[in-house]
């Protein structure tokens, strides 16, 4: 397994919410990618946006500006 590092994780209630996030981040040049939701957040299923910790501010700004439907934002060592 690769080395673990802290990541900014954004979760969603629907896959569509995750898709909107990915689209907005790509358009705005905010780094990150979609990954399966880690079990430290929820033992459910689904996908979340994983961004470098340094991008948290940009992620939060984008969520506000684009009215993205998110469930939560977490700082997690992955």
């Amino acid at each position: 397994m690769r080395e673990r590092e802290e990541r900014c994780i954004v979760t969603f209630r629907t896959t569509t919410g995750a898709m909107a996030m990915e689209r907005a981040c790509k358009a705005a040049g905010v780094p990150g990618r979609l990954i399966p939701v880690p079990r430290t957040i929820t033992a459910g299923c689904g996908m979340c946006w994983s961004a470098p910790t340094g991008a948290r501010e940009a992620v939060e700004k984008l969520v506000m500006e684009e009215h993205l439907m998110i469930d939560g934002i977490y700082a997690i060592i992955l």
Binding site: F12, R13, T14, T15, T16, G17, A43, G44, C45, G46, M69
Partner: peptide, 17 residues
């Protein structure tokens, strides 16, 4: 099945799911 909120006994309330 929805791919999200798997341990919920009810269908997710959010659209479009």
């Amino acid at each position: 099945g929805t791919g999200v909120q798997s341990f919920s006994e009810t269908q997710p309330a959010e659209y479009p799911t």
